[in-house]
Amino acid sequence: MFELFEHKADAGVRGVGKSKEEAFAECAKAMFSVMADLKKIGSEEKFDVEIETNDLESLLVDFLNHLLYLRDVNEMLFSRFDLYITNDGGGWKLRGRAFGEKINKEKHGIKSDVKAASYHQLKVVEKNGKWLAQCVVDV
């Protein structure tokens, strides 16, 4: 599941799941729910995603920012994610796919723009078998 948390000027995006992957995917959904009506975004088109970082928290920020890059360059909105997160000892790696469709102003119930994901209030933690992934995005 995902939710938005309060931030005065911007928006907090949070994903919770049984795994890191699920928490990341839900957090990405939260981000796209700031931009549009998530339920109305199809999933016919897919894009490969591959991110590497030193720490798990940066992996979340880089992942979200990469989705914003794909959005701008391909005019896409995303609604579903298949992700695999691994650690080879030297760093973290995220591989997977983002599913979505071309932005359609009439169909998608466009809300606001998200400019970038920030490191502010960034958290990727496991508690009682549940993973939580969150940060503040600049709106």
Partner: peptide, 23 residues
């Protein structure tokens, strides 16, 4: 901005800079 925030995250340690908010 995104690119260079990421660059600086990695480089800060080298310059002995500590911040209390990664942003």
């Amino acid at each position: 901005a995104t690119d260079y925030i990421s660059v600086m995250q990695k480089a800060m340690e080298k310059y002995g800079i500590k911040v209390n908010d990664r942003q």
